[in-house]
């Protein structure tokens, strides 16, 4: 049987190193299968998160050969066969152990977002054409790969000022909800740091759900912030209409 070498990070918040493991390769195998093989036969204490093994839960995020990926959707045969495969934990989050990182920051950010609140007196009739646009954002499986790759967090550590692409996606889903009555533009500008995003699109590149994060969520939100705060004409227009 063919074999592959994996260089897997072993260590915790105090540091660590990558360790080489030889793993037999079966047809159609994904990196998570290889990690499970290591767990089951070579290193039972290897810490890995996973649940669905089908790209639905967003638990198994890591960096494979330098790229943020879901390990359950990364096929071994898509990676160069002749070199070892490096598997590291997500870089933007504090390490706990091996491939497991502390993603609790994300849950704290989520709490800052005002929930859905229906406009007064809505009838619960919604047209599919309104649903289509928003459903894209609701596909998010919270793998946090976009958070991991975003340089504002990864390189500039702006966790305090910046919510990150995942939560811009979530807010886009709320703001464009056909029945939602709240406005979150001020929050986006002042507290969630939408302006720190320089639309360099790495989040879009890594999203396993193929959500077009930058084009469909972030830029439209930036335009909404412009409406509210930077466009004198719209601001005037709104004043006149008394909105």
């Amino acid at each position: 049987m063919k074999e592959a070498t994996l260089l897997v990070f072993r260590g915790d918040s105090n540091g660590g190193q990558t360790i080489a493991y030889r793993v037999p390769v079966a047809p159609g195998m994904v990196v998570l299968d290889a990690l499970h093989h290591i767990q089951g036969h070579l290193a039972p204490d290897l810490a890995v998160r996973w649940n669905c093994k089908a790209g639905k839960c967003g638990s198994c995020s890591a960096e494979v050969n330098g790229r943020p990926r879901l390990t359950c959707k990364t096929r071994m045969d898509d990676l160069p066969q002749d070199q070892p495969i490096t598997v590291l934990p997500m870089k933007s989050f504090p390490r706990i152990k091996d491939l497991v990182t502390d993603v609790s920051w994300n849950y704290r950010v989520n709490r800052k977002i005002p929930p859905f609140e229906p406009r007064k007196g809505v009838e619960w009739k919604i047209s599919q054409l309104d649903v289509d646009r928003v459903q894209e954002f609701r596909k998010c499986i919270e793998c946090f790969l976009c958070q991991d790759v975003c340089h504002v967090l990864r390189e500039h550590d702006k966790q305090e000022q910046f919510a990150g692409p995942r939560f811009f996606v979530r807010i886009a889903g709320l703001e464009m909800h056909p029945l939602d009555g709240r406005h979150r533009a001020a929050l986006l500008k002042d507290q969630l740091g939408l302006g720190l995003c320089n639309i360099t699109k790495c989040c879009t590149e890594v999203c396993p759900e193929e959500i077009r994060i930058t084009d469909n969520a972030i830029i439209p939100l930036k335009e909404r912030v412009v409406d509210e705060f930077y466009d004198p004409l719209t601001m005037l227009f709104r004043k006149v209409r008394g909105q």
């Binding site: 915790d12 767990q39 204490d45 810490a47 152990k97």
Partner: peptide
């Protein structure tokens, strides 16, 4: 094997 730290 190992410690109590995240040990599957």
């Amino acid at each position: 094997e190992g410690s109590r730290l995240f040990n599957p």
